[in-house]
């Protein structure tokens, strides 16, 4: 199948099954290089954010995903490598000169934007709280301070495909994109990560 057609189909299917309504709060879609960072509650999160972006933005946006999950099986591999153009990170062997941040920087070049989930793993529970952010986001910004950071909050996806489930339940969800932020000069790592986390949390409250 034609890859572009397959991409549109996947985006449409994802929009239908996740029932996602999309909001941009004090923010606009743009094709400049960005890092979308979001809370993580479901395997579908990356697809949902990706499909929520306007088409021309979607074409240059690559989710960062776990290699072990997305290369298991031909379908996932096809979706991740051909449709999503995902940047796959090997969680099991992280080498010194092949740190995830280095791979991301190499892969995005001067063109692509990425979707990351800085919590590291998926949050669990009925009403999951946004967890502490891993430091990768900080090192990424340190090396590429020009990247625009867009906080994203995904609501209700944990009920659509919770951890450990294979089959989704088609409830409605909501994706909120927040205002851009940057790493300030001389900002300490913990301060920055906390500020980024709060930016995501804040989007939960906006109605």
């Amino acid at each position: 199948m034609d890859t572009n057609l397959a991409r549109h189909t996947l985006a449409l299917l994802a929009r239908f099954f996740s029932g996602a309504s999309v909001r941009w709060v004090d923010s606009q879609p743009d094709t400049c290089q960005r890092v979308y960072f979001a809370n993580h509650t479901s395997h579908l999160d990356a697809i949902v954010i990706w499909s929520s972006l306007p088409q021309e933005v979607r074409m240059i946006t690559r989710p960062v995903a776990a290699k072990d999950y997305w290369t298991a099986g031909a379908v996932r591999r096809y979706i991740a490598t051909r449709l999503f153009n995902a940047i796959l990170i090997d969680r099991t062997e992280i080498k010194v000169h092949q740190s995830p941040v280095d791979i991301m920087i190499r892969e995005i070049g001067q063109q692509y934007s990425i979707i990351v989930f800085p919590e590291g793993g998926r949050a669990t529970g009925i009403n999951p709280e946004v967890g502490e952010f891993k430091s990768g986001l900080y090192y990424l910004c340190k090396k590429r301070p020009d990247l625009e950071l867009i906080p994203v909050y995904i609501d209700n996806m944990n009920r659509i495909l919770p951890r450990g489930e294979v089959l989704p339940v088609p409830l409605l969800s909501r994706v909120t994109f927040g205002p851009p932020m940057w790493l300030e000069k001389g900002e300490a790592k913990t301060d920055f990560l906390e500020r980024a986390r709060q930016a995501v949390r804040k989007l939960k409250e906006t109605d």
Binding site: G19, I126, R159, P162, E165, P168, V169, L171, L172
Partner: peptide, 19 residues
Amino acid sequence: LREFITLTPTRPGDHRTLF
């Protein structure tokens, strides 16, 4: 039904029933 269940708190244990 999608709207109804979305606004009704369910627990992870209800997932497969809902499916």
